[in-house]
Computed example of a mutant assay.
Amino acid sequence: MKNLRLKYIRSKMGFTQKELANYLQEAKHLKISRGTIAKYESGVNFPSKRTLKALSKALEVSEDFLAGNGLQTEDIEDTLLNLLQKNFFISYSYSNSNNSTHNAIHHYLEYLEKENEPYNFYKDSNGDLNTVLVNTKFPRYKEIDNFWKNNFKFLFEDRKFKETLIGSNKTELKEEVIQRINEEVNKDIKNHNVTTFINLIDEISHNIKQAAIKESKNKISKKNCQTLSIYKLKEYQEMKNRIKELRKKNSYTQEDLSKLLKNEGISANRTTIYRYESGARVPSEKTWKGLAKIFDVPINYIKGNGLQYDEIPSKILSELINTYYDDFEDIVFTTLKNNIKYWLITKEVKKIADSLDSKSSLTTDYGKLF
């Protein structure tokens, strides 16, 4: 019989056995004594199907997860290593494979410029693949395991990600790993492009402000100059919602926020607050209203609406394109236009810009750079 994951869930919720028993009875109307919980956790007793169903619903987890089915905590690292190893080398036997897991692994290694390195662990002294090792389907050993761990640290060292794998089946595991690898690639690329673009805007902004101050003091205010140079866009942060940001700004702990919501007639324990902040769970409209009242800000702001981090490049790009195509007499806009042209020349894409007839087509082509 597999071990019930009740103790694991209780620990994540921050409850003692007695506190969990009280929570189940008061918040979920499920009567289970502290003694029964202790017996479940120690493995002395196992809940009936009816109790398992009710308990899993109260704890907001699946019955399979609560029952201890699926991937176990102690098996996660070895399972990940097997998945990476098997799915990377599957292409050697099936060259036309459409294996999505292999494609994700290979794509990430291509991004690192290491797509051929795993084969180096199976070559002989002449630099050829060892036929014995190939025929035994590229067996795992310490050095190749270290390769996977070092290059896919975000899989092996991210505690929260590993926790999401607990209880997963093979299909779910593959889906989670593929999604996590793709997220890492997109995050790295986006961070690089946004940083490059923001640095460019900083440079352009500096030149505009200097030109405005030195040559056009009476033509444009410093505030308007800063607005036109759109440097303030970099102050925006990427977020799913702003609950955590507002909580910290007000020096509240998750427990404090839970109590404040309770005063508004809303039940949300510390674990629920954590799920709201991480985006794992979406608050109800009643909860959004309660949060808006507590933080004294509009609901849309808490939800994270407005300009987001990943929208910054397109917003800046639009401003640059409009300026590039328009002729301005004002010294500020002339300086900005000259800077954009200079940057296009250094990037060797001025010919592309000059060959296009419309702003929209430039947006499409120019956008590929980002």
Score class of each variant (00 low, 15 high):
Thr195Ile: 13
Glu238Lys: 04
Lys232Phe: 04
Lys240His: 05
Lys209Gly: 09
Cys225Arg: 02
Gln226Val: 00
Thr196Phe: 12
Thr227Val: 10
Lys219Cys: 04
Tyr236Ala: 02
Phe197Gln: 11
Asn207Ser: 13
His206Ile: 09
Thr195Cys: 12
Glu238Ser: 08
Phe197Leu: 14
Ser221Met: 03
Arg242Gly: 00
Ile201Asn: 09
Phe197Val: 13
Glu245Trp: 11
Asn241Trp: 12
Glu238Asn: 03
Asn199His: 13
Glu235Phe: 10
Thr196Trp: 10
Asn218Tyr: 15
Lys240Cys: 01
Lys222Gly: 09
His206Trp: 09
Ile208Leu: 10
Asp202Ala: 07
Lys240Thr: 02
Asn218Pro: 00
Lys234Ile: 03
Ser205Met: 10
Asn199Thr: 07
Ile220Ala: 06
Ala211Gly: 09
Lys232Gly: 07
Lys209Ala: 05
Ile204Leu: 08
Lys219Val: 02
Leu246Cys: 01
Phe197Pro: 06
Lys248Glu: 15
Ser205Cys: 08
Lys234Phe: 00
Lys209Ser: 14
Lys209Glu: 14
Gln237Ser: 14
Gln226Pro: 04
His206Glu: 12
Ile198Asp: 03
Lys234Gly: 02
Ala212Pro: 09
His206Gly: 10
Asn218Ile: 01
Lys217Leu: 11
Gln210Thr: 14
Ser205Val: 10
Leu246Trp: 04
Ile220Cys: 09
Ile220Asn: 10
His206Cys: 09
Lys214Pro: 08
Lys248Gln: 13
Leu233Thr: 03
Ser229Cys: 07
Ser216Trp: 14
Gln226Asp: 15
Lys223Ser: 02
Asn224Tyr: 05
Thr196Asn: 15
Tyr231Pro: 00
Phe197Lys: 04
Thr196Lys: 15
Ile201Met: 13
Ser221Ile: 00
Arg242Val: 00
Arg247Glu: 11
Thr227Pro: 08
Lys223Gln: 13
Arg247Ser: 04
Glu203Gly: 08
Gln210Arg: 09
Ile213Asp: 12
Leu233Trp: 05
Lys248Pro: 00
Phe197Arg: 03
Leu233Phe: 08
Ile208Met: 13
Ser216Lys: 10
Glu215Arg: 12
Lys249Val: 07
Lys249Thr: 15
Ser221Pro: 03
Ile213Pro: 06
Thr227Ile: 11
Ile243Glu: 01
Lys249Phe: 14
Glu238Met: 02
Lys209Cys: 12
Thr195Arg: 15
Lys240Arg: 04
Ser221His: 10
Ala212Ser: 12
Lys232Asp: 13
Arg247Phe: 14
Ile201Ser: 03
Thr195Leu: 13
Asn207Thr: 13
Ser229Gln: 01
Thr227Gln: 01
Leu228Asn: 05
Ser205Gln: 09
Lys219Ala: 12
Gln237Met: 03
Leu228Pro: 07
Glu235Tyr: 09
His206Phe: 07
Met239Trp: 06
Lys209Arg: 14
Ile204Pro: 02
Lys222Cys: 06
Glu215Gln: 15
Thr227Leu: 11
Lys223Asp: 02
Lys249Ser: 15
Leu200Ile: 04
Glu238Trp: 02
Ile204Gln: 05
Glu235Ile: 00
Thr195Val: 11
Tyr236Thr: 00
Asn241Asp: 01
Arg247Thr: 01
Thr227Ala: 03
Lys223Pro: 00
Gln237Leu: 06
Thr195Pro: 05
Asn199Ile: 06
Gln226Asn: 12
Leu200Asp: 05
His206Arg: 10
Lys222Asn: 06
